[in-house]
Amino acid sequence: MKKVLIVDDSIISRKMITKLISKHNFQIDEAVNGQQALEKIHSTQYDIIFLDLLMPDIDGIQILTVLNKEHNPTKVVVISADIQETTKQKCKELGAFAFLHKPPKEEELDDVIQQLV
């Protein structure tokens, strides 16, 4: 079973993403902030990470940077409210697999997961 980590400081966001991917039968783990995310990433190898960018303290870009530096094979799907093209570029450069706008559409998520699996 695929291991999935959802990183977002918003409860409703995590709930929503969980609901949208529920059909895929993943083992879902959650991190409420950047710090927690890093701890979890370093103790468990995840297959997919759904990453929010806008978080207090350690933000999504910093997490991506760490993952990139460590050559972590986990596929990262960025789901963010920051929809600037420049931000998207930055994520791609840091090795993100996909970039979705918030709020994500179910079809979009399915599409991405399809590509990953």
């Binding site: 806008l54 978080m55 409210a81 920051d82 929809i83 918030k102």
Partner: peptide
């Protein structure tokens, strides 16, 4: 919920400002 909605609003505003000014907008929560 309201926080998330405002995040999304801010993200859209930043995107618009970006396309109008041609400059990247760095956001905070």
């Amino acid at each position: 919920v309201i926080q998330e909605m405002i995040n999304i609003g801010v993200g859209q505003a930043a995107n618009l400002l970006n396309s109008l000014s041609g400059k990247h907008v760095k956001l905070s929560v």
